[in-house]
Design a binder for these strands. Structure first.
Lengths: 329, 329
DNA sequence: TTGTAGGCGTTATCAC
DNA sequence: GTGATAACGCCTACAA
C-alpha cells in the first residue's frame, strides 16, 4: 500500500496524499478527510525507507557495545534509547566483542545504513583501529564514546575519572586503617582498566607494600573474582583490604573470603566498582564506586542529538565518581 | 559517493559498478580491478537504504522488550542479535514499557521501517492490543514471542512451562519435608505471572494451608522482595519455604530473612526463578528454576529466519524448565 | 562485456 | 488547492 494506491482510491494525486500524511497545509479540508478515511481503512503506513532515501536521513542512531549482556552497558543503552525514541530515532544495537576487526566491521555496517550518529559504550572503543574507521567512514556524523575518547573533530568523549576513583577507594580504606590493600582487575587491557590500575599503583605508594606485587588480573566472572581472591589470600595472608575493578569480581571475591572463613569487613574490607545491583545483593552488601554510567550515557545521547541539530558542546568532559558506602568496608 | 560517482571516475556505467559491488559475474576482470581500486580509494560504501528500497527488503529485525535493563530480556536479545548479524540483519531494539498503547506504537514504528521479522521478549506481549496491531499491520512478517503466544498464522510462540515449573519447585520443597510454603510474585499481572501463580495454587493444594492466603504480590525490586518477605514472616511465622517468581525478589527476601535472623535453609528454604547471576551471587546461593530463556531466544530468532527463508516450523512449542539446586534449599 | 531505461515509495518544486 | 515531474541511490531486465 503506497501513496499512489491511496491516491487512486481517493481519486486524487499522490502529492495530495503526501501532504495529508505529513500534515502539511494547502489541501482542502474535505479532500483531507476523504484521504484520511481511506488511509485508515487500508491502514496505510508510510515507508520509512523510501522516506529516508529522499530526505537523506535515516533517523537511526547506532549503539556499539562490546557485550549487551553486561548490565553496565545495557543500562546506558536504555537511557540512550529513551532519549532518542521521542525524537523519531531508532537505535541499532550491535555487539562488537573486543576484537578490533569486529569493531571496525560494526562501524562499516552502521555506515552503510547511514546512521546519523553513534554512541559507543565503553573504553574498548578508544583504540587506533576505531579511530581510523571513524575518520575514514564516519567523519561527518557525531560519535560519542562513553568512558573513552578519540582526538577527532566529530568525536565526543564522556569520561569518568577512573584513576581518581580507584585512588579514592584506596584512600578510603587507608582512612579506615587498612594498610595491606590489594587490587584485582578484569583482564581486557583497555584504557579504562589501565586507568584503574594506575590509580591503584599511584595511591598505593603511600602503603608499606610493593603495589605491583599486590595488583592482580583475572577474568570478568564470578569465578574469576573467586580464584584471584584465593590467590591474594595465599600470597599475602596479611591482606586487609581489596579493591575490585568491577562489582561482579567483588561478589566472587566475597564468596572466596566466606569460603576461607575470613570475616568481611572485620579482617578484610572490600570495595567494588559500578555500584550495580550486584553490590546491593551481596551479603554483606558491597561498598562500591558509582562511576556515573547513567549520567554519562544520557550525556552521550544528548551530545549526539545536539550535534545533529547544530548545537555545540565540548569534545571532552569528565564526570566525577562517588563512593557509595555499604557493609563491606 | 554513489555508484554514479564511482562510474564516472572509472569511465564506466553505473551498472558495471553495481555488478562489482555485488560480486556478480559478467564484467571484465580488468574493469573490475579498476573499479575496485577506485571504490577503495574513495572508500565507497553502498547505501543500505537505497538498496532496501529497490530490493524491498530492509534486512532489519525488530526486537521488542518491556525494559532492556532487565537482564533476563537482554540475555535473549544478545543471542538473537548474534544469530542474525551473520545473515546481514540488524536489530532495532525498542523498549516498550508495559502500557498497551506504547506496545502498539512500537509495532507501528517497526512496521514503518518495514522490518522483516519481530521478536518480542516476554509474556506481556501476549495481549489483545498487540494481537490486533499485528494482524492489522504486520500480518505478513514473522513474529516470534518468547514466553508468550497469540493465535495468528504468522506468530510463533516459544513458551516455557512456568506453571509446571513452579509446581515442581513446590514439590521439591515438599520432598524436603516443607509444608508451609509461600509464594511471592512480582506485580504485573501478565500471562507468565498468572501461570506461575496458578502453578503454585494448584500444587499447594496438597499442603495443610489455604494457598490463597500464602500467595503474595510485590514490586519487582530488591526492596519489593524484602518487604513482601517481612510480611510473610509476620502473617505466617511458621513458614518453612518460599518460592519467588524472580531471582531478584528472592535476593531481597534473603536479606529480609537475614535481618530477622531466620536461618536459610534450616528454618526457611527458598527458591528463585530465572537462574540468573543474582542466584549465584547470593549467600547462601539460590536454588533457582532455569526456565530456558536462552534456548527460547535462540529458537525465536531461528523461527523468524526460517519463516523468511520459507522453512516451516510449528507455531507453538514449549520448553521444560530445570531446577538448579544450590544452597538455599 | 557493457550500457540504457525503468522503477522501488517518498518528498519537493514547479506549474496550473 | 491541486497535480505532474524530477530527484534520492540502487538494482535488474533488456538492448547493444
Amino acid at each position: 500500500m503506497t501513496i499512489y494506491d491511496i491516491a487512486k482510491l481517493a481519486g486524487v494525486s499522490a502529492s495530495s496524499v503526501s501532504r495529508v500524511v505529513n500534515q502539511k497545509p494547502g489541501v482542502n479540508p474535505e479532500t483531507r478527510q476523504k484521504i484520511l478515511k481511506i488511509m485508515e481503512k487500508n491502514n496505510y503506513s508510510p515507508n520509512a525507507i523510501a522516506r529516508g532515501l529522499v530526505s537523506q536521513s535515516s533517523k537511526t542512531i547506532g549503539i556499539l557495545v562490546a557485550d549487551i549482556r553486561n548490565i553496565h552497558h545495557t543500562d546506558g543503552a536504555y537511557y540512550i534509547e529513551k532519549e532518542l525514541i521521542g525524537l523519531g530515532y531508532c537505535c541499532i544495537i550491535l555487539n562488537t566483542g573486543d576484537r578490533d576487526e569486529d569493531k571496525v566491521h560494526a562501524i562499516d555496517i552502521l555506515n552503510r545504513r547511514r546512521v546519523e550518529g553513534v554512541v559507543m559504550m565503553g573504553s574498548i572503543f578508544q583504540c587506533d583501529a576505531v579511530k581510523e574507521a571513524i575518520s575514514q567512514q564516519m567523519s561527518d556524523v557525531p560519535v560519542a564514546i562513553v568512558n573513552g575518547w578519540l582526538d577527532l573533530p566529530n568525536v565526543y568523549g564522556i569520561l569518568s575519572d577512573e584513576q581518581g576513583g580507584v585512588a579514592s577507594c584506596v584512600k578510603y580504606l587507608m582512612a579506615k586503617g587498612r594498610r595491606k590493600i590489594a587490587f584485582i582487575c578484569d583482564k581486557p587491557y583497555n584504557p579504562s582498566n589501565r586507568l584503574k590500575e594506575s590509580g591503584y599503583l599511584q595511591s598505593a605508594r603511600d602503603l608499606s607494600i610493593t603495589p605491583a606485587e599486590w595488583s592482580y588480573r583475572t577474568e570478568n566472572t564470578l569465578e574469576g573474582g573467586y580464584e584471584a581472591t584465593l590467590q591474594v589470600l595465599k600470597e599475602h595472608p596479611d591482606v586487609d583490604g581489596i579493591v575490585y575493578a568491577v562489582d561482579l569480581l567483588a561478589a566472587g571475591g566475597l564468596q572466596a573470603l566466606h569460603a576461607q572463613k575470613v570475616p568481611v569487613p572485620e579482617q578484610v574490607a572490600i570495595i567494588g566498582i559500578n555500584n550495580s545491583t550486584y553490590a546491593q545483593i551481596c551479603s554483606p552488601s558491597l561498598t562500591s564506586l558509582d562511576n556515573k554510567r547513567m549520567e554519562a550515557s544520557v550525556m552521550a545521547a544528548r551530545f549526539v542529538i545536539d550535534h545533529i541539530s547544530g548545537k555545540k558542546n565540548p569534545n571532552r568532559m569528565m564526570l566525577l565518581p562517588d563512593l557509595v558506602v555499604r557493609q563491606s568496608t
